[in-house]
Deep mutational scan, measured.
Amino acid sequence: NLYFQGLKYMVPGARVTRGLDWKWRDQDGSPQGEGTVTGELHNGWIDVTWDAGGSNSYRMGAEGKFDLKLAP
């Protein structure tokens, strides 16, 4: 699974964008943008601060869902 392989790169400072299971509307800005991981992966959740200004926790394994992917 590509998403599980990418988890080791989901570290503080990593750049991310919305992924396969995104369901959080425009939390990442409008139009959709990139963000920066600000915390360690914990119980399948990870913290992100978006360039647009907001921050929140997103699923990276929790509930079998992956809200994020590494930015290109």
Rank of each mutant, 00 (worst) to 15 (best):
P72S: 14
A71S: 11
E40K: 12
K8A: 12
G61R: 02
K65N: 05
D28I: 04
R59P: 01
D67Y: 02
A14C: 13
W50E: 00
R15M: 03
G64F: 07
S55G: 09
W50G: 00
P72T: 13
A71I: 13
G6K: 11
M10T: 04
N1K: 08
M10Q: 04
E63L: 08
N1L: 12
P31W: 07
R18I: 08
S30I: 14
G39N: 09
A62Y: 15
D26I: 05
N1R: 07
R59V: 01
M10I: 09
P31F: 08
F66R: 03
T17I: 15
Y58D: 01
Y3S: 13
P31R: 06
M10Y: 14
E40S: 12
G53E: 01
M60S: 01
A71G: 07
G29Y: 05
G19N: 07
W50N: 00
I46E: 00
D26A: 08
D26C: 11
V11W: 08
F4R: 09
W24G: 06
P12Y: 11
L7S: 09
L68W: 02
W45L: 05
G61Q: 02
K8N: 11
T38D: 06
G54N: 10
N1Q: 12
K8T: 11
S55P: 02
Y3W: 14
W50H: 00
G6H: 15
K69E: 12
G39Q: 06
L7K: 08
T49Q: 12
D26L: 06
S55R: 13
I46G: 00
K23V: 12
L2R: 13
G35L: 01
G54K: 09
P72I: 12
Q27N: 06
D67H: 02
F66C: 10
P31I: 08
M60I: 05
L68F: 02
K69L: 12
M60C: 09
E34K: 11
G19C: 08
N43L: 10
L68T: 00
Q32W: 11
R59G: 02
T38I: 13
R18E: 01
N56T: 05
L20V: 14
Y58P: 01
V48D: 00
L7E: 09
K69M: 14
G54F: 10
V16M: 00
M60R: 00
Q5P: 15
W22Q: 04
W22I: 04
Y58I: 01
T36C: 09
S30P: 10
Y9N: 09
D67R: 00
G44A: 02
A14E: 05
H42S: 11
Q32Y: 11
D28R: 02
T49W: 07
I46M: 07
A71F: 07
H42P: 02
G29E: 06
R25W: 14
D67Q: 03
D21P: 03
V11I: 12
G29R: 03
Y58L: 01
Y9G: 10
S30D: 14
L2F: 11
Y3M: 13
V16A: 00
L70H: 08
K8Q: 13
N43E: 10
T38F: 07
L20P: 15
V11S: 09
G35N: 02
L68N: 00
G61N: 02
P12K: 12
G33L: 07
G44N: 02
V37P: 00
D67W: 01
P12G: 08
D28S: 05
G35E: 02
T17D: 03
Q32F: 12
K65F: 08
